[in-house]
């Protein structure tokens, strides 16, 4: 069995690495951008729409159809080494005409860098963007949450379905601005629908295979699962 992970020393790619220091006296805007932003401009040119620096954190707005390519390069390139995906989420502005933003928070442990990628998706059409699951397997649940809460369809995600709300939740996407706080249905209807859920719904075999956990299960459990037995009982 090969080593499941490689040990990464934070800051190992920095020359004369010292302990990280908290930056002080950061300007609100216009601070020094993350060097990766310039590298992205040089490599992808027009795909980079805008670079913002707010409180020392760099946000790069990129074109929606290039995002998987860009993330893959940031992950694989030895001069970038963004080896950790912190979060995938979305932002809807209070101005409802503004496009919806999908946000990726990337962190490079060897370089001690933090980069925020954003894609603006205009409303009115299908909200769709590439999944980064082929690069970061940890994006699985994060993207399911973005789908569950904002209704963003992540192309190429292996198992895109609700994660926080139950699967038969019919009221829409709760974190969208047009979603009423108490939901769309009456309390009794909400309770009726909630009680109609199947408490037996558990991890499917597909889910276990996707997580690559199936092969690591004990042999007897693998046999029982292969015969169609439900897990967790």
């Amino acid at each position: 069995m090969t080593a499941p992970f490689a040990v990464v020393t934070p800051g190992s790619a920095l020359p004369g690495a010292t302990a990280p220091a908290t930056p002080k006296n950061l300007p609100h805007t216009g601070g020094e951008p993350n060097p990766s932003a310039e590298a992205l401009r040089a490599r992808f040119g027009g795909a980079v729409e805008r670079v913002d620096v707010v409180w020392g954190e760099t946000t790069v707005y990129v074109q929606g159809n290039r995002v998987l390519e860009i993330v893959r390069w940031l992950h694989d390139d030895p001069t970038q080494q963004y080896d950790y995906l912190s979060d995938v989420t979305a932002v809807e502005q209070r101005d409802l005409d503004q496009p919806l933003e999908v946000v990726w928070h990337l962190r490079s442990l060897p370089f001690r860098r933090f980069l925020r990628l954003k894609v603006r998706i205009p409303k009115g059409g299908r909200l769709e963007v590439d999944s980064v699951w082929p690069v970061y397997k940890g994006a699985d649940w994060l993207e399911r949450e973005a789908y569950d809460m904002f209704g963003i369809n992540l192309r190429g995600h292996p198992d895109l379905r609700r994660i926080l709300m139950w699967e038969s939740f019919k009221e829409g996407y709760p974190l969208r601005k047009d979603f009423p706080l108490r939901g769309r249905f009456s309390r009794s209807e909400q309770l009726r629908q909630a009680l109609d859920q199947d408490p037996e719904a558990r991890y499917s075999m597909e889910e276990l295979s996707v997580a690559d956990a199936f092969a690591d299960l004990p042999p007897d459990m693998r046999e029982r699962l292969a015969t169609g037995e439900k897990t967790g009982e």
């Binding site: 139950w166 909630a194 859920q197």
Partner: peptide
């Protein structure tokens, strides 16, 4: 939460 409603009933 509503997701736990059938669980607590069970």
């Amino acid at each position: 939460p509503f997701k736990l409603a059938p669980i607590i009933r069970r």
